[in-house]
Write a protein that binds this DNA or RNA. Structure first.
Lengths: 228, 228
DNA sequence: AGAAAAGCAAGAGCGGTGCTCTCATTTGTG
DNA sequence: CACAAATGAGAGCACCGCTCTTGCTTTTCT
């Protein structure tokens, strides 16, 4: 009942994931080949399906793992800052996210690039996918708790969504703060995506320059000081 | 010498592109299959290669076409506004871009989603790819010419790039304005990408709400009025 | 006009993919 | 020990991009 078989199964499963991740890292998502993994493992291609019922299921596993790694670096960067300095934390987390993205471009593409056509991310992914955003929201909440005030106007439909979101998360932030934060989030991801997907090649040579400007701009906005 | 053969060749070529676009629109890029196109055309799969030497070449053609369509809608939206109202033009162009994106998600994914692994966009694409950005820069230039002032600081490396960019484009805009504009650009594309690629599904229900907030925020920033 | 050259479509074929099915073997358990 | 479950192997299906050869048609040149 120790389950010797279960153990070797778990090991093989994680070995498959390991090879899959290496494949994705090397040639991007879409280059993921179950047959190639089977070859590397020295087993028949059909045997892989005992561990992952389809290529998409394996891809989902990679998705979850990558979201978790991103969550790790975001949380680590946040934890390394004094909690009383939300703007320093914002800068640190933002740069940590970009750092992870440029270090793992294929994984970033997997998370934030073109979604697989017929593929809808299952429930298991939303937890890991939320981690890095929760870090950002936490910073926002602390900044507001420290006295920052954000002025709207927040469009009515957005306000309703934000209210629901706040209640779901159980965090105490105003709708105005959430709206500002989502704007910063979009700018953050937009800057990284433009950079990583090559849209700055014919515009700007210095990698990260646009990103720095974006982060600094939103640092000022997120500061939420009166008169801004 | 009228070139009857050339004409039928041109027609067949555009027919191939038409079917390819339909395929991409239906099932996203990556579902593009030369064999399927050949089947639809009732010809041998090998015959396609007389018109496009490889799948990537056909994809490049689709890329150029899509960039041109995006450029069309951006320019049209801009032209429909009074030139003397740059902020109105910004709003109009931004919403036009998003409108095109939500109406043609697969084409948007083709342009701004995960790049094809080994694929590097050839020179012919940078012209069409620049059109919608030139519209945005034009608005920025007019706004600054109308008296708007943007304050830095612009990071030194970014400043160098922006100077080169300005000289290349031959537009008269300050580095500060360009930096602010690129920030708005990143936020714009980031908001669209997050929405279209499903990252708002568990956050916000109202499509476009985040986008509106982002556009309005940057409208205020781009206004460039003293005290902002 | 006739011959040479160029363009074109078709078919077979290579190596690759995801995935399914069957069959034999191994392994843990009642 | 015997039985049932889990596992691996192999063949096979339908698809993919791409290449090569083989004929046929159209254009062009002499």
């Amino acid at each position: 009942m120790a389950g010797i078989r279960e153990r070797v199964r778990a090991e093989l499963t994680s070995e498959i994931v390991r090879l899959a991740r290496a494949q994705v890292a090397a040639d991007g998502p879409g280059a993921l080949s179950l047959r190639a993994i089977a070859r590397d493992l020295g087993m028949a291609s059909s045997a892989i399906y005992r561990y992952f019922p389809s290529r998409d299921h394996l891809l989902t596993q990679l998705l979850i793992d990558s979201y978790d790694r991103l969550g790790d670096v975001a949380e680590a960067a946040d934890a390394a800052c004094p909690r009383a300095d939300p703007m320093g934390r914002w800068r640190a987390v933002a740069h940590a996210i970009r750092g992870w993205a440029v270090a793992n471009p294929s994984e970033y593409a997997l998370l934030f690039g073109t979604p697989v056509p017929g593929y809808m991310a299952p429930e298991d992914t939303i937890g890991p996918a939320s981690r890095y955003t929760l870090v950002l929201i936490g910073i926002l909440a602390d900044q507001e708790a420290a006295g920052a005030r954000y002025k709207g106007p927040v469009p009515a439909p957005l306000a309703a969504d934000l209210t629901a979101l706040r209640e779901f998360l159980g965090v105490s932030v105003s709708n105005e703060a959430l709206a500002v934060g989502m704007g910063a989030w979009a700018a953050l991801m937009g800057a990284i995506t433009l950079e990583l997907f090559g849209h700055l090649h014919n515009v700007v040579d210095t990698p990260g320059a646009l990103f720095d400007a974006v982060v600094e701009h939103h640092a000022a906005v997120l500061a939420g000081l009166p008169g801004t």
